[in-house]
Amino acid sequence: MYLSFSQKRKILKSFMELSEQVDKYGRTSYKFEGSNERRKTVACEFSYTGNGYVYGANLPDYANMADERGWVSVRDFSSTQLIDIVSKAINSISNYPREVTPQKSAPEQETEFTGFEHRIIRNLIGYKLYELKEKWFWEKQCKGFKSGLYFYQLDTASIPYPFSPNEVFYIGKAVNLPERLRHHFTVDNRKRLVDDERSLEWFYQNYYLSKNYSFNIRLFSLAKSEIDKYELLCIGMFIIKFGAAPLCNSIISREKFKTLYQNISEVDKNTVTKIIEFIT
């Protein structure tokens, strides 16, 4: 399973040797001040999209994965892999190489939560438009996922929400995820949802603005009976955390969210918290 931004950040911040810096877009970088080289940055450009790079040009185990600048994308790394490459990157520029391990924090006590599966469909603009309109394409991408929530996220840009930038620009739910996502790219289906050409033009221009960017879709598989509740909870928690809602078909006020949140079980609270962690 992919690590969320918060999970990667927690791992990187656990290295006592590294200091964190956050840029105006919310991306984080990590410097090793004890470097014996002019270059002090060990890891950079970690963001909500999943992007993140560790300098690996001098690392035999990772040099073949490095780009022309020497950076290794750790986007899909597991926690073990991320710890390994960061440890080796620190040692490669240290005057006193040693076994570097992240500082262990006290184990957190977790409440059992409703299980869900998570998947990322990456770089949608990399596919042909005719593919995005085909039923077989979405059935393949969503294999094993029937009902659940989905989040559209920009890949190379972020949206300046009032409290903090974030890449999410759409939150939705679906009883049938493959069919629902296919409809997003089938304009003919959209024509039946609006009354006139002016409405269609506004919807098309705003909704499909994302086609000018690289973007991903995050899927969360949930029981059909739970998707309405979790959609409202995710939208409400997003508003609380970022100050405004992204595009979405459902609306929930802060007051309604607080009431709903107070009346759900600890299992539900833990589940929606974990979903939000994946996108933040």
Rank of each mutant, 00 (worst) to 15 (best):
I240D: 01
Y2Q: 05
A106G: 02
G26R: 12
I159W: 04
E277G: 01
Q109R: 03
S253G: 12
S199R: 10
K8Y: 06
P178R: 06
T114E: 09
I227G: 10
R119E: 06
A157M: 11
K40L: 08
K269H: 04
Y130P: 00
K135R: 15
Y25I: 00
D196W: 01
A89P: 02
S79P: 05
K24D: 02
V267P: 00
Y127N: 07
F137C: 07
A244M: 03
N212S: 12
V74A: 06
T49L: 01
F185I: 11
P178Q: 03
L209P: 00
E110G: 01
K128P: 00
D155A: 14
Y170D: 02
D196C: 13
G172C: 11
Q262G: 10
D23H: 02
R192V: 05
G236K: 09
K88I: 03
G26W: 12
T80E: 15
Q7A: 15
V267W: 01
R39E: 14
P102L: 12
K140S: 11
E20P: 03
Y130H: 07
Y150D: 11
E45F: 10
T49A: 15
Q81V: 06
D155K: 14
W136Y: 06
G172P: 04
L154F: 15
K211F: 14
S221M: 09
N95C: 10
R69S: 06
Q153K: 14
E33A: 12
Y130W: 13
C248W: 02
L154D: 04
Q81C: 02
S19G: 00
D67W: 02
Y2C: 00
A106C: 05
S210V: 12
Y208P: 00
S79I: 06
I90R: 07
K8W: 08
T259N: 05
M1N: 06
A223T: 09
P97S: 07
F257K: 11
M65H: 11
I217V: 13
T156S: 10
P246W: 03
L129C: 02
I276H: 04
S199E: 14
K269M: 07
E17G: 03
E255A: 15
F46I: 07
Y161N: 01
L219W: 01
I279S: 03
E197Q: 14
P60D: 08
R98M: 08
Q141M: 15
K241E: 12
M65A: 08
V272K: 01
E33G: 09
Q262H: 09
F220I: 14
I125T: 11
V272R: 03
G26T: 10
G34P: 02
K104P: 00
E266N: 15
F185G: 09
L222Y: 09
E255N: 08
F238G: 02
W71M: 12
F238E: 10
I227K: 03
D188C: 04
V54T: 09
F278D: 14
W138M: 09
I279G: 05
S94M: 09
L232E: 11
F151K: 06
G50Y: 10
I11R: 08
R122L: 07
L232F: 11
I217K: 02
G172T: 05
S87Q: 03
N166A: 09
I251A: 04
W136Q: 07
R39K: 12
N58E: 15
W71T: 12
S199A: 13
R75K: 13
I235E: 04
Y150E: 04
Y2T: 03
I279P: 03
R9E: 05
G56W: 11
E167S: 15
L132I: 02
E110H: 06
R198K: 11
V100I: 12
V267N: 15
I276Q: 05
